[in-house]
Amino acid sequence: MIEIRIHGRGGQGAVIASEVLADAVFQEGKYVQSFPAFGVERRGAPVTAFTRINDKPIRIRTQIYTPDHIMVLDPTLLEVVDVTAGLKDGAWILINSAKPPHTFTFPDRYRVATVDANAIAVKYHLGPRNAPIINTAILGAFARLTGIVSLETLCNAVRAAVPINPEGNVAAVKEAYEQVIGDGQ
């Protein structure tokens, strides 16, 4: 079973990202479960969302405490939240940032990657200009790093989930897929 934790801020689309990822993986025949951190949410406040992926039915109904990978939609969260809490060795830490991965300091047991999802979202006019929607782009990068889901399936899931400008979102997924920079790559 693979457990993924997404860190974002209220309004950034962390919950939707967890659902789109689940839907995409489900389309490839796997069992999935996605859910927000159980609680109240507020725009701008740190939020988390989760996706579980397995080859057999997922019966466990707890929150995720030891994720296999994490995504961080806003790098400033690194100063606020212990994003690596419980994170398993060898995990990918994917950060939405224009900076290269080595500028972030994490223990060696983790792999760090960055993608400038903000720039991509702005380029494809995703969301309002004052709050670009970056959750689809980050999934493209995540798919490339982990190989958890194929680019094509992910694009289909994004197309089905996004009510406005689906093709722009798909283009963003593809661009992030190409642009993501992994540690040591």
Partner: peptide, 12 residues
């Protein structure tokens, strides 16, 4: 159904 654990959890 349980709050959040089912109500807000997506699965197939």
């Amino acid at each position: 159904l349980d709050a959040f654990v089912l109500s807000h959890t997506s699965e197939a």
